[in-house]
Nucleic acid binder design. Sequence first.
DNA 1: CCCAAACGCTTTGAACTTCAAAGCAATTAT
DNA 2: ATAATTGCTTTGAAGTTCAAAGCGTTTGGG
Lengths: 147, 147
Amino acid sequence: MDAAHSTINQVLVTLFNHILRIEENALSFPGLSIREVHVIEAACEAPDTRITALAQMLHVTTGSLSVAVTTLERKGYLLRKRREDDRRVIDILPTEKAKAIQKKHIAFHQEMIAAVMKQLTEPELSILVKALHGIDSYFTEKETQKA
Amino acid sequence: MDAAHSTINQVLVTLFNHILRIEENALSFPGLSIREVHVIEAACEAPDTRITALAQMLHVTTGSLSVAVTTLERKGYLLRKRREDDRRVIDILPTEKAKAIQKKHIAFHQEMIAAVMKQLTEPELSILVKALHGIDSYFTEKETQKA
DNA sequence: CCCAAACGCTTTGAACTTCAAAGCAATTAT
DNA sequence: ATAATTGCTTTGAAGTTCAAAGCGTTTGGG
């Protein structure tokens, strides 16, 4: 492969690995595993969402999520609320404690984006967005093929 | 936050999640978990590496890696080779079967990069590389702070 | 030279995560 | 009414990870 090819590959791979590990550090809270933090975040981003839907977002089975919600409820981060119009359905609600976690996550993202933008001019930024969009739509296509 | 800010955040987050899931699909082989595939890849990228060093690369304990190597050896992907000059040390070697897995991983990357490059002009590409580098160095800095 | 300390890997036991499948309660359709 | 479906929970098994203990090998101090 040619030089540009290999450069892009390199930088994408290392960046990706970096983000994975840094996010793990940024999102480590005492008494919470990474998985649990992800559940909390999903519940914050989509409050009043039922177990099944939340499980789909997180790509786990409802059984797995049910277990996770139980422990997070016990730890004081989530609440179960039975729907009155259909009492089979249970909505998940984040507590204030959960929202505090989410707030730190958002701050982490803000900081990251600010670091990116600081280094680029206006036109460079739009090229970056275009490129990332392009990559993403490629992947979206790929994924819908599989499914 | 302003529009550019939120756009970049959006596209980075969705792209990141896409890559995570797509790579899981692309790298799913019958009889191998994602973790196992990652161990195989590390062993291919750094052949003749001792257990301890490989464990550090993968960010797991030597105990965990020892277990993983045992099962991958049993499945025919890795080999243990005791060093003659220091018989405490064990190097890990990939078998041909492991290299075949790695080959598919590389092909996946090639395809991904090709998709990116196809959508951008030469100067756009260099801006992308610059931007990604910038993000990465920001993270590298962050990480060394923690450590 | 010998023995203690250090080193490198493996084993073990516990904790956690996840899933598939079975179970239970509520709703819908026949 | 009651059978089928839906939504969530429970259960049992498998996989992953870690800390700590264990075992063989090497190194260093006396």
